[in-house]
Design a protein around this nucleic acid. Structure first.
Lengths: 341, 341
DNA sequence: CAGCCTCTTTTCATCGATGTAGATCGGGTC
DNA sequence: GACCCGATCTACATCGATGAAAAGAGGCTG
């Protein structure tokens, strides 16, 4: 920057001012500076700027794993939203581990990013205190509500699972398996979605049959969906509906069903959760719940940006924490029979 | 850091030395420092460290889009490999655009990352010069060989597509469609894979039938696979094999085939490319080419790490650029009939 | 006991930008 | 002509760490 200043015949600070969009600069000066920058091929050193100014224009996104389509697609949505606000995104995969998540929470304090959008998967309620008073803006994504003192963007987990189960009940299914149960107590969305399943059953005077629960403690991957489905089929013999706790599980379950010669949706109707791109092109195309992923990403980034602005201008008082629940949509495709009114 | 130093009764530099693993520190001093760090809840400011030392321990990964399973899974592999070398990764999606890719190439010069693993999708041969003498270590991934002056990790595109086509020919198929053709001249892997397809046909005295080519200029997504397949079927009426230029296209194509009542593999055999997780759980399970994704990630990170080390120790001379071609594997599943010898 | 070596710690300058406060300048006001 | 004002630019300290180099402390050698 000193070189540029020398070449343009101004001070380093003026170069800095040009680059930061400071208004009081004569047009001719600005041009000289820009020319010099061009001629020297100078690029601003972001690190130094962050160190001095305390703001990087980068936000962090902590998710468990990008290979899972839900998170990969979510990451793309967050990136797009961030770009609209002129923010960059540093993605930090946490690998579904507590340590990975705690590590991600420490990153912003090291000042590379200004704030964090965090989708926890391994922390539990006991960790709520970790999320408060972090010293930087945090927006939580996903199922669990840890604390009323942090911004949250979440989805209608219970209602979604209930809508999915209701659909199956509406078309006359009664032996409805649930694929994707987790023993882990941290499994917020599993618990909530299971609750929706149970509520739907109980609202019709039915109760949960333990033998219809398929476990997938190794994670919500397709392989485990197939495995859990197999276990249920081997256990109870027959099933006429499946609620899967996410789309990957559903696709794995459909695979297992079809391998066994069962027809979907005639013999067994299947509903997933998440509306990932795969769901549209599975065979048959999967009926699923769109939890409002795009809305979630947009709202999360917008909340974070507002918090960042709050910090800059001490004028406006800190707003109270927000809890935003995204809109839900049941998308009926071919893995369930049409509902007859 | 000054606070920590004061509390531990040492100089700031000693605290720095403790944190950087400098060997000559008395055990008792180290403990005092660590205790002080703990008591004060101090966290090192990475930004300042980068500014001063010039090394961040962060490498960049530039890929087009994480929502595409291939790139999401690749990103996870790169992250895992980086972790093994104690490196962090900053992911920068380029959105399949030239501007996005040029932007990603500029990022390291701003000094947030030490080097870059870059998977280009929109640059073309004319941009080769952009990739040379960037002033930081660069490792290129993927199909195109831009320049002999840059490290490359690539895959056997031609051979893979040829193996896929050969498999179909071996089981007696002759009307083999190709799904995923691109008009764009930048489409390196499309061109190479098409070449493999053509070579396989010509090796048996067959030639390419233009009507069997399915175009997918909007990107290699499932939707376009289905669309391209539909176009081919509408055009020529009949087909007994499909080579898809990636797995997503293949799954889309299978969807379209089955919607039209065709049986896979009896009526039409299908082969994909990439071996993404989906391929294993599609119905039927997809026969595909594993281009060695894990190996690619590992080798890329390792090459980058070595270049970074080279820069530190000026002792050893710069090694010549490496071109590494990962091992290829044809994975036969259910979308093709077994090969009879 | 001087001289030297190894281990341990400190001093000081520095990485490259920006915040703060103040200098400079031409013109308008009274 | 003195004073003030807004526009424009600059000087200087500073963000928080680390590299280079040297100082201090024992211990060993001859």
């Amino acid at each position: 920057m000193a070189d540029v200043a020398r070449r343009a015949g101004v001070s380093a600070k003026t170069v800095s001012n040009v680059l930061s969009g400071y208004p009081y600069i004569r047009e001719s000066t600005r041009e000289r500076v820009l020319t010099a920058i061009d001629e020297l091929g100078y690029e601003l050193n972001v690190t130094a700027r962050i160190l001095r100014s305390g703001r990087s224009g980068v936000i962090g996104l902590a998710v468990p794993e990008l290979g899972q389509p839900y998170f990969g697609e979510l990451a793309d949505e967050v990136l797009a939203a961030a770009r609209r606000h002129d923010l960059q995104v540093l993605i930090e995969p946490t690998g579904f581990t507590r340590d990975g998540e705690l590590e991600a929470l420490r990153e912003p304090r090291r000042r590379l990013v200004d704030g964090l959008v965090f989708s926890p998967a391994a922390l539990d309620q006991g960790d709520a205190h970790v999320l408060e008073n972090l010293g930087y803006p945090l927006v939580l994504l996903g199922e669990q509500i840890f604390s009323s003192r942090v911004d949250h963007v979440t989805m209608h987990n219970v209602e979604g699972a209930r809508a999915a189960t209701d659909l199956l009940l509406d078309v006359g299914r009664r032996r409805i398996a649930l694929v994707g149960m987790l023993h882990a107590p941290t499994a917020g969305s599993a618990r909530l979605r299971f609750q929706g399943y149970r509520e739907a059953l109980e609202a019709r005077g039915l109760s949960v049959d333990e033998r219809l629960l398929g476990w997938a403690d190794d994670g919500w991957h397709r392989a485990n969906g197939a495995r859990a489905m197999a276990a249920v089929l081997d256990g109870v013999g027959q099933v006429d509906g499946v609620v899967a706790l996410n789309d990957a599980l559903a696709i794995g379950a459909m695979y297992e069903l079809q391998v066994r010669g069962l027809s979907i949706p005639r013999d067994v109707a299947v509903v997933g959760f998440d509306d990932i791109e795969d769901a549209r092109y599975s065979v048959p195309a999967l009926t699923t719940i769109d939890p409002g992923r795009r809305e979630i990403a947009e709202v999360a980034v917008d909340l974070l940006r507002r918090r960042l602005d709050e910090r800059t201008g001490p004028g406006e008082p800190t707003r109270p924490p927000v809890l935003h629940v995204a809109d839900l949509r049941l998308i009926e495709r071919e893995s369930t029979p049409p509902r007859v009114p």
